[in-house]
């Protein structure tokens, strides 16, 4: 088939605003574009609302009319967040950073090692171990919050960073994704490493890890996001305000009596913008990670 012919038969699924489009299809394309643009703008409105309210004064928020944009942006609100007398936002932010960073690093290390062991090291009971790991995928994490609390409180870890971080480190999903990636890794490369005298760890560390950066980035970014945005577990375990994460602090302030709206939204901005930037920067990896999550069901 010549390329011109191929182009013609392919046309139906390619679409777009070509020159020789039938009018009906053209109308469809225009309608589609209008809907997509409107939808995209609609989806960005909540972000605009966060920033608008964060920069407004209290009287502007209390007005009867919708305020499109504050008369004068109150950057002071962001500083005031940290001197809020009701909620220790600075401490909460620090806790969130510590928890998310440590949880991300440890989750990735533990899951990558386990994934590689399950993918590549022959062992008689490997199947059984795999089964026990994968079975926990069937149990939604949120349903186990009562059991895990029972365990963690008997260890005396309530309201501590340990209690916030450690129970969340054992993600079967991350192991599963790593195992899948490492199973697809070219065996020839690993064999070459073995011939050069590398052991299991040497092959993993010097050959496999440097060549699977994308999956590390994907799982790391997804873990970080989930950890930063987590709410139920930090709420259950953080019974003392000094162990609150930023999400728990925001929630406590939202549901408190008479919160200061602009400070609340300024705090929400501080809690959201850094992860949003990270998300935009790593979007490609996060997308790939989610895609493989979806295909595993």
């Amino acid at each position: 088939m010549t390329s011109a012919a191929a182009q013609r038969v392919r046309a139906p699924h390619l679409s777009g605003g070509g020159v020789r489009q039938p009018p009906l299809e053209r109308a469809g394309a225009i309608l589609r574009t209008v809907l997509l643009v409107l939808g995209a703008l609609l989806f960005l409105i909540p972000f605009y609302l966060i920033i608008r309210t964060a920069l407004a004064t209290e009287p502007e928020i209390a007005e009867l009319e919708f305020t499109l944009w504050p008369a004068k942006a109150q950057w002071q609100n962001f500083a005031d967040v940290f001197s809020n007398s009701q909620v220790p936002f600075a401490r909460a932010l620090l806790n969130s950073v510590l928890v998310s960073v440590v949880q991300t690093v440890l989750t990735v290390v533990l899951a990558a090692l386990a994934g590689y062991g399950l993918a590549r090291i022959p062992y008689r009971y490997s199947g059984l171990v795999s089964g026990l790991v994968l079975a926990t995928l069937m149990i939604p994490a949120a349903v186990t919050f009562v059991p895990t609390f029972v365990m963690v409180s008997s260890l005396g870890w309530v309201s501590s960073l340990r209690g916030l971080i450690i129970p969340g480190l054992f993600s079967a999903l991350a192991v599963f994704l790593f195992r899948q990636q490492f199973s697809d890794f070219p065996r020839d490369l690993e064999e070459a490493g073995r011939i050069d005298g590398l052991g299991y760890f040497g092959v993993f560390w010097r050959i496999v890890v440097p060549n699977t950066g994308a999956v590390f980035a994907a799982i790391g970014a997804i873990t970080f996001l989930a950890s930063w945005n987590a709410f139920l577990w930090p709420l259950v375990i953080g019974q003392d305000p000094n162990s609150w994460t930023i999400q728990v602090a925001l929630s406590a302030y939202t549901t408190s009596q008479n919160p200061n709206y602009s400070q609340l939204f300024a705090a929400a901005t501080i809690a959201t913008v850094p992860v949003l930037l990270l998300f935009v920067g790593l979007q490609r990896f996060i997308r790939q990670g989610y895609e493989s999550t979806g295909s595993t069901g």
Partner: peptide, 18 residues
């Protein structure tokens, strides 16, 4: 795709208060 980076807590705050 961007909203998936937002936490439910922050989204709740926007929905409830704005």
């Amino acid at each position: 795709f961007l909203p998936t980076a937002c936490s439910y807590v922050v989204a709740s705050l926007v929905w409830k208060m704005a």
